[in-house]
Design a binder for these strands. Structure first.
Lengths: 188, 188
DNA sequence: TAAATTTTTTGACGAAAATCAAAACGGCCT
DNA sequence: AGGCCGTTTTGATTTTCGTCAAAAAATTTA
């Protein structure tokens, strides 16, 4: 499934606009643990995960590596604090598995915006999806104890448990790796 | 300052599009503790806070009232999980003070999207601002202890402390009111 | 395959915060 | 002023989780 097929599951894009996006994007492979984007840089690329999994993280004031988000098959990723606003990012993005990713540069996307207003609208829809997931994550974690946070992963993102190391998942949930390990032990 | 002036601080909207937005919006007053939107409804209105403060909250599975967000002067508010996607919301929205709010319906906004692609783009920019604040809030709270969360409010939203009751702020920060009160006592 | 590295688990302990309950405070009304 | 309401503070106790440290398991590398 290429990314146009995916887009068409939630947005009715015209053939002409689809053509435009395809012509501006390219598919490339990355081995695991490739750093796609680093903190401080302005992110110029929007990726679409065709295969593999990517995480999006930052280093907090105490030097901890904290995962904010995972993106696996059929997800768009970029440094959302940077890409659209053209300013330096707080985030790193790295592959966790060998990945096949479509990419598109900001410049190309911007010219597509101008030629196809529907692409502008599409990007709004994608941002809304991201925002909504972010809100859902928040309310799943805020005020919840560790075992309830773990349940969120089990119910909403069970695949992550198989594909991602516990340390990353723990920081994503806002708990320590040890606590996560213990919770997991006492109720499979 | 009306909302067009505010928009122009971050987005160069044309006079024609501005006219369109102004013609579609209306200003109204609400007394404090008005419920603007309730869980389960599809939200049809986008508000802009001219004066006053509004909170956006949900009731979690344990029946707790949890504030997700505050919007004060020069902010847009709607049920972001509902308004653009036309589906029932999980959120309530209520005024905390007497408010003057501009409002615009979804139908009017949608027809404006079609007539002015730049309004489409504007909505994307606004969503990005919301998303970015949401991300900032997350990283300010995740893995942080109560005193650090309190510091986030002091540094980023000091006005809230004066205008909003402690209980709402505590749930916004993901801590209990008692803990917040104690933190506050031991270091003014 | 063995050695080395990384990841996960386990244990003991202490710190932080939730909970329950009650008192103090402040504003508002008559 | 006095009484009533909602909000904030304080106290005592319990639970949860983080921290530090080390062992066990799994994965990678040579």
């Amino acid at each position: 499934m290429n990314f146009i097929d995916h887009i068409r599951t939630f947005f009715p894009i015209s053939d002409a606009a689809a053509e435009e996006l395809v012509s501006k994007s390219r598919l490339a492979s990355f081995s695991r643990h490739s750093l796609l984007h680093r903190e401080g840089d302005v992110c110029n690329v929007l990726w679409f995960v065709e295969k593999g999994i990517v995480r999006w993280y930052y280093i907090d004031e105490d030097g901890r590596d904290i995962t904010d988000w995972f993106a696996s098959e059929n997800s768009f990723v970029t440094a959302f604090d940077s890409f659209f606003q053209r300013k330096p990012s707080r985030y790193f993005i790295e592959t966790l598995e060998d990945c096949d990713l479509y990419s598109m540069t900001y410049g190309d996307l911007e010219s597509s915006f101008n030629r196809f207003p529907e692409i502008d609208r599409l990007s709004r829809v994608i941002l809304l999806q991201i925002l909504e997931e972010q809100l859902a994550k928040n309310s799943a974690l805020q005020f919840r104890k560790a075992s309830q946070r773990y349940r969120f992963i089990i119910e909403k993102h069970p695949d992550l448990l198989r594909r991602v190391s516990l340390g990353h998942i723990a920081s994503y949930l806002g708990i320590t790796q040890e606590t996560l390990s213990r919770i997991r032990a006492r109720r499979s």
